[in-house]
């Protein structure tokens, strides 16, 4: 990796928070009504990242499969909880779906793509699974909310299709497709503009850390494909289980 990233001094950090204070003042004067949200988010970000860095330091140091699994499970719980909160749906199935899909895809990235012999190597596993899970989380929240909304609105159409002999999936497939499409849009847009409009965080980080841009690009492509697959798999599975909750004994329940 060559030379390492230049450290940011404590003084610079204080300067950054002063800038954030200035930004808060502007938001307040403009009366945008988001001062409170901004400050809470700023605080959350700072605290979470501060503790995150300490936790990561310890995990990297211990670097055993069980500490990685424990941390991964905590990540799953938080991500699934966020999906439930954002999409306002309930369903225990979200937890295993997020766990299994994120785990499998990170494992694939780690072992098959990168060729790391230690699958739980925490420096890779925690960071990569975080990116995979974070993207799946946003996509699932979006897809589930959309899907539930569509089903609530279109109960009469679903009933009509049922009256013609449609099975459960056929009756909701239109809304299934729409929801997956809406969940996939952000990642597709990202893929098409990456490298021109913006350089993603992972690639930027690697380049800053002194990595060869060619290598950073390969990682970026690998992670984007991995994320796309995870997004599709996790939304499809979650929507499938959600769909079944709307039916009992073959009858549609809004």
């Amino acid at each position: 990796m060559g030379e390492s990233v230049k450290d940011i001094s404590m003084l610079s950090m204080i300067f950054l928070y002063l800038l954030s204070g200035g930004l808060t003042l502007i938001l307040y004067v403009l009366n945008l009504g988001i001062v409170k949200d901004f400050l809470t988010s700023l605080l959350r970000m700072s605290v979470q990242l501060f503790f995150g860095s300490i936790v990561l330091m310890y995990i990297f140091k211990i670097n055993t499969y069980w500490i990685v699994l424990i941390f991964f499970t905590v990540m799953t719980i938080v991500a699934s909880h966020t999906i439930i909160k954002k999409s306002k749906v309930t369903g225990w199935f979200i937890y295993p779906v997020i766990f299994i899909v994120s785990f499998t895809m990170t494992f694939m990235f780690q072992v098959v793509i990168v060729g790391n012999t230690i699958w739980y190597d925490s420096r890779y596993f925690i960071t990569i699974s975080g990116m995979v899970m974070g993207n799946s989380m946003n996509a699932c929240a979006l897809a589930l909310e959309r899907f539930n909304g569509e089903l609530k609105e279109n109960g009469d159409l679903i009933e009509t299709l049922f009256s013609f002999g449609a099975n459960n999936f056929e009756a909701v497939s239109e809304f299934f497709k729409r929801s997956i499409r809406s969940a996939l849009m952000p990642i597709i847009t990202n893929m098409s503009s990456v490298g021109i409009v913006f350089f993603p965080g992972m690639m930027t980080g690697q380049i800053l850390a002194g990595a060869d841009p060619g290598n950073a690009v390969k990682y970026q492509i690998a992670i984007m494909v991995t994320i796309a697959i995870s997004v599709v798999l996790s939304t499809m599975l979650n929507l499938y289980f959600m769909m079944n909750r709307h039916f009992s004994k073959g009858i549609f329940k809004q």
Partner: peptide, 17 residues
């Protein structure tokens, strides 16, 4: 149930397409 719905078939007052 799918067969039943086709054989004894309900038609809504306000159709949906």
């Amino acid at each position: 149930v799918r067969e039943m719905r086709k054989k004894i078939h309900y038609v809504r007052q306000e159709p949906r397409f």
